[in-house]
Structures are given as C-alpha cells and as structure tokens.
Nucleic acid binder design. Sequence first.
DNA 1: GGTGAGGATGATGAATACAG
DNA 2: CTGTATTCATCATCCTCACC
Length: 283
Amino acid sequence: MTFVARRRIATRAIVLDRSLESLPIFRLSDSAEDTAISFSPESGGRWRVLPSPGDRLPGTFDQDVYIELLHRYHEAGAPEDGVISFTLHAFLRSIGRRVDGRTYEQLRSALTRLERTTLESSGVYVAAKEAQPLEGRFTILSSVSIARRRLAEREQFTLFPVLAASEPGDARVTIGPVIRSNIAAGHTVTLSATHYMSLTNPVARRLYRLLEVAREEGMVTWRVPLASLAEQLPLTQRYPSHLQRVLQPAHEMLLAAGLLRDASFRQLNRDWLVDYVLASRAA
DNA sequence: GGTGAGGATGATGAATACAG
DNA sequence: CTGTATTCATCATCCTCACC
C-alpha cells in the first residue's frame, strides 16, 4: 500500500474507545426529565452519566461533536498529550452544520458539556491496561478552552496572555487520559466517517457504534434482549412496541448503508429480543 | 471574509395521552 | 399492553445587527 493510499483511508477512519462505546452516554431522545443515565449490565456493577449542575445531559448534538473530536484526534496522529485545536467554523463545517450564531453557541456549550459531564464507573468500564474494571469517575474531555473575540479584546483580560494571543474562534481541547489510554492500547472500534455521516438518524449513529463493538468482539450474529439494548443505547421508551418504533427506522438506515445484514425483532414467550446479523469486515 | 448574539418560523420526531 | 393521534421540545434555517 502506498503512503498516499494509506493516508486517504486513515482520514476516513474514526477510532473510538471500545469500552466507552459499549456504554450509554448520550441521551438520544428529548425527554424533559434530565436525571442521570444509569446502566447496570448483566455482569454486575453500575455505570452512570451525571450532568454537570445546571446543565443537561449530553444529547445528539454532543454525540456528533464527540465523534468529530475523536475523528480529528485520529487524523492528528493521536498526539500523546491529547490536545487538538481547531476553529469553530471549520469544525461546524465538517459535521455538516450551518455556521451561524446558533450553531456556534451550540458547539461551545457542547464542548463544555463534554468537559463537565461526569462518567462514573463502578466496576463496569474496562480500562485495557488495568486488571480490574474501573472504579471511579472521569470525563470525555479533560480541558476545553475557546478563545472569544470579545473577551480577548477587553483590556482587563490581558492578564491571560494565552487567551489574548490566540485567534478568535479557536478552540483547544484535551481528550481525557482514560479514553486516550484505551485507544493507545488498541482497545478500540473503527468507524467509517463517510458511513457515519451518511446516517441521518441519531439512533442509527449510536447503533452503528454499538454494533461495531459486537463485531470487534468477534460476533457474527448478536441476539440481545430488547430491554437490555434499550438500556445500553440508551433509549427511554418502556414498551416493546414503542422501542420498536424508534429502532425500526434506524435498522432500515443501517441495512441500506450495508452496515448491517439483518435486524429482526422476535418474541419468545414474554420476552422481546433483537437479532442482528452483522455486516462483514470488508466495506 | 470570519465571529457572535439573538429573533422568527417551520420541520422533525419522540414523548405523551388516549382509545382499543 | 398496543396502536394511533396530538403535543411539544429541539433543531434547522433564515434573518438582522454588530464587530473585526
């Protein structure tokens, strides 16, 4: 393979922390209640996502921002300090959003939310280099700084020379060390950026990542109780019919994109299951 | 040209309510 | 518990205005 060819493929890849992708983080629905996400896997332990006080849980916009950040981290050659810099303008363009006052504001709040939202693992999150699953808390981003024109210009802020010196709209964020460590250890899933962007439904985007975890762990078919899947995504709907209503369009989108061979709902006695037939590695 | 706040309005789709 | 109708928060899109 030539350097050029390898480079082109690399820029289309999104490399994510496999442990993180197996856990629920982003609220996919717009339910008014904004309590913490809580997930208790079969294997025991508990996982929680705690919003920062006064803020909401990360949502679908934050999900897209998170993915683009990791996309850029990979493109930048996964720098050891985890720092990536970009302009808000370029970032919005690359996630296919319009660039106006609204989206600037959304992006800024999404970045700070990714820094402030607490992820709590009680023996659930697997850190590749550790023998035991993690006991403790961490965040997706460990630092976020965004230079703002108006702040940078004010005289009284000259005591922050770094801020004053940087260009307006420049963001500088640090991917958290826990996530970086798993990526460095190769405990990852790899997505196609093209495919990811082509999925217009946020549930489909989330499901794509979760299915990649299953595939990375060697599964060809994956049978999962509907209720467990709902917890793991997460989806808040309680009834099987409601869950199916949300999942069905996502399944259709993934099938059409060739990211999934088959998806079907089955009822065995009282229990609803979902059977996935995963796509082959090629694509 | 790039930032940045914010008003107005329509589109979207999941939550919710309600009937079966 | 499920299927259908309605409601409503969020998002997208358009704009103006101000500033560099």
